[in-house]
C-alpha cells in the first residue's frame, strides 16, 4: 500500500534490519504490514500535541514509529522488563525528549484519568489472562480523554480451530520460513505460544470493550492470529 504510514514503517525497518531484535519479523511474519495497518487506522492529525500511552513497548519499535509519525506528541511507554525499557528509552531519546518511560506490570499501572488521546499496544496484551485483560480495558477507558482512541495489534484466538490448528500453524510457519526463520527458533516460538500465551477471540474482546464503555468498536485488519482492533471513548 502506497501510504505515508507504509513509507515510515519500511524506512524504519530498513534501519533496524540486522539488529538483534529483528527476529520479530520472522516470528510475526506480518509484523510490518500490521504496523502499517495500525498507523493507517489511527486517524489523528500528525501535527497535534497528543498525549500517547503505549502498553508493552518492548524494544521500542512502535514507540519510535509513533515519535516519527507524531513529532509534537508526548509519549508514555510502559514495559514490565527493565532491559527492554532501557533499549526503548535509548532508541527514543534520539528522536524526541518528550517522553516518560514507566517500568510496571499492567496490573499495577496507576495513571491519571482523562489524560491520553491515544492508548496503543502491539503484541503485548496476550500475556495477560482473561480477567486481567477485561480489567485493563476498564482502566484504559479511564485513562483516555473523552473522544480518545484505543488501538491494539495482537494475536487473537481462532474459533473453533484454536491456535494450534495444523492448517493455521502451517500458514504461520510457512510465512515465517519465507522471512528466513530457522527450525530452532520455530520450535522455540511454538513452545512459547503453547506455554505462556492467553489468546482471546475477537468477539470476546469486542464484548469486554463494550462493557468497559467503548464505542465504535471494530477490527481493522487480521491475518492468521494477528489482529488489529480498537474503539473510542465517547466524547463528553
Amino acid at each position: 500500500m502506497n501510504t505515508s504510514a507504509s513509507r515510515i514503517v519500511s524506512d524504519f525497518f530498513d534501519r533496524i534490519s540486522g539488529d538483534y531484535d529483528a527476529s520479530i519479523f520472522r516470528g510475526c511474519p506480518v509484523y510490518e504490514e500490521m504496523l502499517v495497518a495500525l498507523l493507517d487506522h489511527l486517524w489523528l492529525d500528525p501535527a497535534n500535541e497528543y498525549r500517547i500511552l503505549e502498553l508493552g513497548c518492548g524494544t521500542g519499535n512502535l514507540t519510535c514509529l509513533l515519535a516519527q509519525t507524531f513529532p509534537n506528541a508526548h509519549l508514555t511507554f510502559v514495559d514490565i522488563a527493565p532491559e527492554m525499557l532501557a533499549i526503548a528509552r535509548q532508541k527514543i531519546a534520539s528522536l524526541t525528549d518528550r517522553f516518560e518511560a514507566v517500568q510496571s506490570d499492567f496490573n499495577a499501572l496507576d495513571l491519571p484519568e482523562n489524560t491520553f488521546d491515544l492508548v496503543i499496544s502491539s503484541i503485548a496484551l496476550h500475556h495477560l489472562d482473561d480477567p486481567d485483560k477485561a480489567r485493563l480495558y476498564r482502566n484504559i477507558f479511564r485513562w483516555l480523554k473523552p473522544g480518545g482512541r484505543f488501538r491494539c495489534a495482537d494475536q487473537c484466538m481462532i474459533l473453533p480451530a484454536g491456535i494450534g490448528a495444523p492448517q493455521l500453524r502451517d500458514r504461520w510457519l510457512s510465512l515465517s520460513r519465507e522471512k528466513g526463520a530457522n527450525e530452532e527458533e520455530i520450535a522455540l516460538w511454538v513452545r512459547h505460544s503453547d506455554e505462556s500465551d492467553h489468546y482471546t477471540p475477537i468477539f470476546t474482546h469486542f464484548q469486554w470493550l463494550s462493557e468497559a464503555g467503548f464505542q465504535h468498536i471494530d477490527c481493522y485488519w487480521r491475518k492468521v492470529y494477528w489482529t488489529l482492533y480498537g474503539g473510542e471513548k465517547p466524547a463528553a
Partner: peptide, 8 residues
C-alpha cells in the same frame, strides 16, 4: 464459535 478470520 463466531469469529472474524481475515480482514483488510
Amino acid at each position: 464459535h463466531v469469529d472474524c478470520y481475515w480482514k483488510q
